[in-house]
């Protein structure tokens, strides 16, 4: 981005403040839900959905991923694939468990 885009930046600042307020609200929601004593699976699903929404907001707006160049998207797509492989490796271990 160039320095001449000062007006655009002022608009961005309003978006940043909205994102900030949303992040705080989602934090309060996720903490409140954790006291509801949900069973393990729904609790994990709800907490991870809220965390993913919060993470997406940070990545999209604070890290400007919503308007980035293709090269960065390409690197992140590759990272996502390997990240998912890493996360699902434990499932392989679960299926391999000796009873």
């Amino acid at each position: 981005m160039e320095l001449s885009h000062a007006e655009d930046i002022k608009k961005h600042v309003r978006v940043y403040i909205s994102v900030f307020a949303t992040l705080l609200a989602l934090t309060i929601i996720t903490v409140t839900i954790s006291y509801f004593n949900l069973s393990v699976v729904p609790a994990i699903i709800v907490a991870l959905i809220i965390a993913s929404v919060k993470g997406s907001l940070v990545a999209s707006y604070f890290m400007h991923l919503i308007s980035e160049k293709k090269m960065i998207y390409a690197a992140l797509c590759l990272t996502t694939v390997f990240f998912l492989v890493l996360i699902f490796i434990p499932l392989l271990a679960m299926s391999d468990r000796i009873h």
Binding site: T30, S34, A43, A47, L48, I50, A51, G55, V58
Partner: peptide, 13 residues
């Protein structure tokens, strides 16, 4: 962003 995931995973679940 990392903390956003660490917080529920370690403290809430």
């Amino acid at each position: 962003l990392v903390w956003i995931f660490l917080f529920p995973v370690l403290y809430l679940l």
